[in-house]
Amino acid sequence: MEALSLFIRSIFIDNMIFASFLGMCSYLAVSKTVKTSVGLGLAVVFVLLVTVPVNYLLENFILKADALVEGVDLGFLSFIMFIAVIAAIVQLVEMVVEKFAPALYGQLGIFLPLIAVNCAIMGASLFMQQKAFPNIGYATVYALGAGIGWFLAIVLMAAIREKISYSNVPAPLKGVGIAFIVCGLMAMAFMSFMGIKL
């Protein structure tokens, strides 16, 4: 039950975009059409699902105080280790996608390597470290929830932006400006989930 509540919590209440603003850059840059945003969203879910559990193992068996050698705390290395794992896995995913799904690769284009520097990926690993989950199952569930939350946010945003492109927006607000304000309004809507007790 606890895993289920963690799952729902990480999708709606602790939503990556609306509650902690992670992955905003690619979120704003790619959310112009629903099609590409679905692709990027799926890529983020996938990369999260792989990197968070791997980093969880790394954190618990190497970096934690006393984990590797008695009396040694390697915690200060966690940033560099996490980012190295993420960069390596993204590279791997890129090669796999290029080989087996060239159409998707063409669509994702430059965004796939950019996932390595997507704050949502790194952020999920850092939150995982902060929340100190009891076992790897929870970490995986959290990664899945965070990924789906991000996916949901970017697809919703893309759908709204597709509609907005036909509306008469004041010139200075066109593009990024209105995207920010729409995102703010969506975040307000998502805030209503905060009342849910799980």
Partner: peptide
């Protein structure tokens, strides 16, 4: 709350772009 940060940045962009027409998107 988080949403206001987004809206405030939106407003900052709005003000800046109404002052500088060359930054406006088509």
């Amino acid at each position: 709350n988080p949403p206001m940060a987004l809206i405030l940045i939106g407003v900052v962009i709005w003000i800046q772009r109404s002052k500088m027409k060359e930054l406006q998107e088509k």
